[in-house]
Design a binder for these strands. Structure first.
Length: 434
RNA sequence: UCCCCGGUAGCUCAAUUGGUAGAGUGGGUGGCUGUUAACCACUAGGUUGCUGGUUCGAGUCCAGCCCGGGGAGCCA
């Protein structure tokens, strides 16, 4: 009679009985008369033990030759054993080879370089560290959807093709297809969320965004994922409160449910456990003072560079919210501060540990005449924004929101150096394969 | 786009002042009944990124190009 097929994550439910696992050989440690087969199946890793006396000679020989990443179906008796990784092991009675994997390029030992690993990204995903990162990414995404679902936000998808820019036009990918006018890959779903929040009150979008920036740093991808909530009747304080609750919720969820993955990544948990409210709210003016005290030569009015952000974030053990930047360095749709028209009601959230900005947002301009002036000031084609101006023509209300970069958030939580490891198949300047 | 660093075995790296190209790992073969990136022995494996130059002689020095890494600007 066939044994039940189970996953490694559920082995504990089957102690004492025979089960079948379907997966891949992660590693093999062979002795003279027994083999230790480390098998992974996507839900975890488990050790199978093959004793020469318990199996046929052919099967024992097969196990002696199994290469790393061979696909295998194995059957054996589950028992708890402290010596086994994961706490359970299988005394194997059958090993079926599905396909071999001679010459598998990624070795367990001997570190590989980033170029080699990225070229083999489709295989690199199978390694322990990458498995942990992708599972944490998955948890972050699920936590995001749960957070907004519980708060009665409606998930509204924004288009990928857009007729005009939200940010600078130099960073747009042009698409040559639509007959009437040029189209571009989206840089942000925000403008569409502004329209949607006037319909549903509280909305968010979650999708890919594209930036044709010639950026070559550990914080940049050409294609990255962003979640963008937008809330009607929200002011800047509401936006900051939402951002704080949101980031805390994500970190807490990963700490609760992904301990094993964080352990695989050797993440310093105390850094994540420190992520609790309240986050410091620092005005742009105060941030400039921090920089000056640190000896930076910084002039009021400019935007912060990456080294500036790092200096400011190092003054705190949790994300820092910097608000009210000079309007001149921010996008056209920002609402001006009623107390100082030179400043915008915006907020950036800077993550600790040098990851940089994970959130950018603020309160939006809700007055028609003001917004028309800003569009002209920025030299943008007004006709492309008529629909956006309509939002201010009929039933305009104060509203605001922000965008959170998924890969930077995942990189920060995982404690990894580069965002390229925080997305399954990174797209970067000079890299589109695989 | 600019600045800095690099390109040597499948992979990660070493090679003294310009003088016969080396190790680990992975592959192969053999050994081992409790391994935790197992270990031990043996073994195969090279047009030193490309093109040109200097030199008796270039992995090493020079020029140009290609590719990669890190950073800046810009941004999430």
């Amino acid at each position: 009679m066939a044994t039940p097929v189970v996953t490694i994550s559920k082995l504990g439910d089957h102690v004492g009985s025979d089960v079948t696992l379907r997966g891949w050989l992660y590693n093999r440690r062979s002795k003279g008369k027994l083999h230790f087969l480390i098998i992974r199946d996507g839900t975890g890793m488990a050790q199978g033990v093959v004793f020469k006396k318990n199996v046929s000679e052919e099967m024992f020989e097969l196990c002696d030759k199994l290469p790393q990443e061979a696909s295998v179906i194995v059957t054996g008796t589950v028992k708890a054993d402290e010596r086994a990784p994961g706490g359970y092991e299988l005394g194997l009675s059958e090993v079926e080879l599905v396909q071999g994997a001679e010459g598998y390029p990624i070795a367990l030992q001997s570190g590989h370089g980033p170029d080699f690993l990225l070229t083999h990204r489709h295989l690199w995903l199978r390694s322990k560290r990458q498995l942990a990162i992708m599972r944490i990414r998955h948890e972050v995404i699920q936590a995001i959807h749960d957070f907004y679902y519980e708060r009665e936000f409606i998930h509204v998808d924004a288009p990928i093709f857009t007729p005009a820019a939200c940010e600078g036009t130099t960073t747009l990918f042009e698409v040559d297809y639509f007959e009437d006018e040029k189209a571009y890959l989206t840089q942000s779903g925000q403008l569409y969320m502004e329209a949607a929040c006037m319909a549903h009150g509280k909305v968010y979008c979650f999708g890919p965004t594209f930036r044709a920036e010639k950026s070559k740093t550990r914080r940049h991808l050409t294609e990255f994922w962003m979640v963008e909530p937008e809330v009607a009747y929200a002011d800047l304080d509401d936006v900051m409160q939402l951002a704080e609750d949101f980031v805390c919720h994500i970190v807490k969820r990963v700490l609760e449910r992904r301990q094993a993955e964080l352990a695989d990544l050797e993440r310093d948990l105390s850094k994540l456990e420190a992520i609790v409210p309240p986050f410091p709210r620092v005005s742009y003016d105060e941030a400039v003072e921090i920089l000056k005290k640190a000896g930076r030569d910084f002039e009021w009015g400019g935007d912060f560079g990456a080294p500036d952000e790092t200096i400011i974030s190092e003054a705190y053990d949790r994300p820092v919210m910097i608000h009210r930047y000079p309007a001149a360095v921010k996008a056209f749709y920002m609402k001006a501060d009623p107390e100082d028209a030179k400043k915008a009601l915006c907020v950036d959230v800077i993550a600790p540990e040098g990851v940089g900005e994970i959130i950018g947002g603020g309160q939006r301009a809700d007055d028609l005449a003001y917004l028309e002036g800003k569009i002209e000031e920025h030299g943008l084609p007004k006709e492309s924004f008529e629909w956006f101006l309509d939002i201010r023509r009929w039933g305009s209300v104060p509203h605001g929101g922000f965008g959170l970069g998924i890969e930077r958030t995942v990189a920060w939580i995982c404690g990894i150096e580069h965002v390229r490891e925080a997305i399954p198949f990174p797209r970067m300047l000079y890299r589109i394969y695989p």
